[in-house]
């Protein structure tokens, strides 16, 4: 790789060095440390081993891993099915209403993430609003707990990631030409058929971004299962934190993180191979990420 001119070096060198130093190298270190022996005093030991991956073959861990993947998948499906009608409504609405809806969707997510999760703890609290409502309706028994189970984790995951699904979908649908659907209907295609054959392929880029920004962060959830999940709602993220902060076993924590790294890059790799190593054009992806970042904020 050669720099075409000195100007390019000058402009890009600072961020390239920063990201290499604080993003690439640390990621490589995680993978390396997962192959190191652990040190009983909590540091990194000498010598190499595959003990760091011992957790992966532990049956109780298998359950946590399966729960992590399952909850992330269900979250993605629910988020997309809720985001679809909302985005369609927004895209078809007048511009003024569109702007208001965008603001209304973005505002809760400008709030501190921990506070949002905590708010659900209050709502689902044994003496909270929802429990009392459900009790009067006879939906739950007196001893049933709405908190500290998989359902609570799923609910808060959907709450957290739904706006991230709405924004890329809305951006794609807004650009979609609805006359195509009318044309398909005129040509005799049914409502469902034109939705699947015309509408969904037309907004496929939006769907892919929505899946990416919900599924991948959900895989790495830590705070949500930690606060509303209890022992029955633990996910991979909790296990990583437990290995690092409670057991002080860095190689084991790294082993689990390496697993997560693989899970994150695997879909991308498959996509690259699937596209016959045709590089995914940089700008459209950037624009996608941008268009929803500038409309709302992200990250949680």
């Amino acid at each position: 790789m050669k720099f075409k001119n000195a100007n390019e070096i000058k402009i890009s060198i600072s961020s390239l060095i920063w990201l290499t130093l604080f993003f690439v190298i640390p990621t490589i270190i995680v993978v390396l440390i997962s192959f190191r022996n652990s040190d009983p005093s909590g540091g990194i030991g000498v010598g190499w081993s595959i003990d760091g991956f011992a957790d992966v073959f532990n049956p109780s861990f298998g359950m946590i891993l399966w729960r992590t993947v399952r909850l992330s998948l269900i979250t993605t499906v629910i988020c997309l099915s809720l985001a679809m009608p909302v985005s369609i409504y927004m895209a078809k609405a007048e511009e003024k209403i569109q702007n208001w809806l965008l603001l209304l969707i973005a505002i809760p997510f400008w709030t501190n993430f921990l506070i949002r999760v905590y708010a659900w703890k209050i709502v689902l609290h044994p003496e909270g609003l929802v429990k009392r409502l459900f009790l009067t309706l006879g939906l739950v028994s007196e001893n049933a707990s709405l908190l500290y189970n998989e359902g609570a984790v799923l609910l808060v995951l959907v709450y957290t990631y739904l706006p991230f699904a709405i924004l890329p979908l809305y951006t794609a649908i807004e650009k979609f030409d609805f006359r195509l659907i009318e044309a398909a209907r005129d040509l005799g295609s049914g409502q469902i058929r034109s939705f699947i054959k015309v509408f969904l392929p037309g907004i496929s880029q939006g769907i892919i971004s929505a899946i990416m920004v919900v599924f991948i962060p959900a895989l790495g959830s830590y705070v949500i299962p930690d606060m509303v999940g209890g022992p029955d709602g633990e996910m991979l993220g909790n296990k990583i934190a437990q290995r690092v902060f409670v057991d002080r076993n860095l190689p084991k924590g790294s082993g689990l993180s390496t697993l997560l790294i693989l899970a994150v890059i695997l879909p991308g790799l498959i996509r690259v191979v699937y596209k016959k190593i045709k590089p995914i054009s940089a700008t459209p992806l950037n624009r996608k990420i941008n268009s929803y970042l500038t409309k709302s904020k992200s990250k949680s």
């Binding site: 790294i261 994150v264 970042l293």
Partner: peptide, 17 residues
């Protein structure tokens, strides 16, 4: 390098740092 940190879970970035 710019796009990856936007997608990867926070816990990975925290752990690697």
């Amino acid at each position: 390098l710019i796009t990856l940190p936007l997608i990867i879970p926070d816990i990975l970035m925290g752990m690697s740092l």
